[in-house]
Amino acid sequence: MTEKPWDHQVSLTDPRALRAYAHPTRMSLVGLLRMEGPFTATRAAELTGESVASCSYHLRILAKYGLVEEADPGGPGREKPWRATAAFTEWPNYSPDPAVASAADALNAAVAENQFHRLMRALETRHNLPEQWQRAERHTDVMLYLTPEELTALGERFDAMVEEFADRAYDPALRPEGARRVAYLQVAYVAPDRAADTERPGEEA
């Protein structure tokens, strides 16, 4: 059984922490530790393809901002195991502080880019999946007209449904036969206005 982080989530509000976490290797290390940790910098190098020295450096940076910690403080050098401190990471969707807002936007962009690359890798190999998995996968979108309150409520409903399956990540005994790791993305944003949306039919711009 993979060790479950004891905290539900870690919150990042320091601009330096937000920018530190935006590094793709660090995001990858935190994700791997949550799913497969604890592990050492040597094992991290095997999983990421980075050097041991690079992984050790990035793990120390993550520890500085409370995202990971030593699982065995007495462990020797690079062979000491690391673990994630929480199951999820959150950061502000909005901040009146320009420094925080800018760093959060940069992190959002880094996360979106990382998710895009992961999605493209999955699409490149999905033809190898059994038919039932190919049919079960979802690639769809829809335009909705919502108020901020409605969008918040919709997200909370999705969160509640996803939470039903969250413990399976940490306890394989809870996974039914045939279960596989699935990346389920929730993305909702206000679509930029287009001039055509405000033009009346037959009217030239």
Rank of each mutant, 00 (worst) to 15 (best):
S95R: 01
P96N: 05
D97L: 00
D97H: 01
D97C: 00
D97N: 03
P98R: 01
A99F: 00
A101L: 09
A101T: 03
S102C: 01
S102K: 04
A103D: 01
A104C: 04
A106W: 00
A106K: 01
A106Y: 00
A106T: 00
A106I: 00
L107Q: 02
L107T: 02
L107S: 03
L107M: 06
L107K: 03
N108M: 14
N108R: 09
A109C: 00
A109M: 01
A109L: 03
A112G: 03
A112V: 06
E113N: 05
E113T: 11
N114L: 09
N114S: 14
Q115C: 12
R118E: 12
L119F: 13
L119N: 05
L119S: 05
M120N: 11
A122G: 04
L123I: 09
E124G: 09
E124K: 08
E124M: 06
R126K: 11
R126W: 06
H127Y: 12
N128T: 15
P130I: 03
P130E: 04
E131W: 14
E131K: 05
Q132M: 10
Q132P: 13
W133S: 10
R135T: 12
A136Q: 10
R138L: 14
H139L: 08
H139E: 07
H139M: 14
V142S: 09
V142D: 04
V142F: 06
M143G: 06
M143Y: 14
L144R: 13
Y145K: 11
P148G: 04
P148L: 07
E150R: 07
L151R: 10
L151W: 13
T152P: 02
A153N: 05
L154W: 15
G155F: 04
R157W: 02
D159W: 14
A160T: 08
A160Y: 01
M161V: 14
M161C: 09
E163D: 12
E164D: 07
F165Q: 15
D167F: 13
D167V: 13
D167S: 11
D167A: 15
R168D: 09
A169K: 13
P172A: 06
P172W: 03
P172E: 04
L174K: 10
P176S: 02
P176I: 04
P176W: 06
E177A: 03
E177W: 00
E177G: 00
A179Y: 03
A179C: 00
A179S: 05
R180A: 09
R180S: 02
R181L: 11
R181S: 10
V182E: 08
A183K: 08
A183P: 10
L185F: 09
Q186W: 13
Q186F: 11
V187N: 15
A188H: 08
A188R: 13
A188M: 15
Y189I: 06
V190G: 02
V190Q: 07
A191V: 14
A191D: 05
P192W: 06
D193M: 11
D193Y: 13
D193S: 15
D193K: 10
R194D: 09
R194K: 07
R194A: 12
A195F: 15
A195H: 07
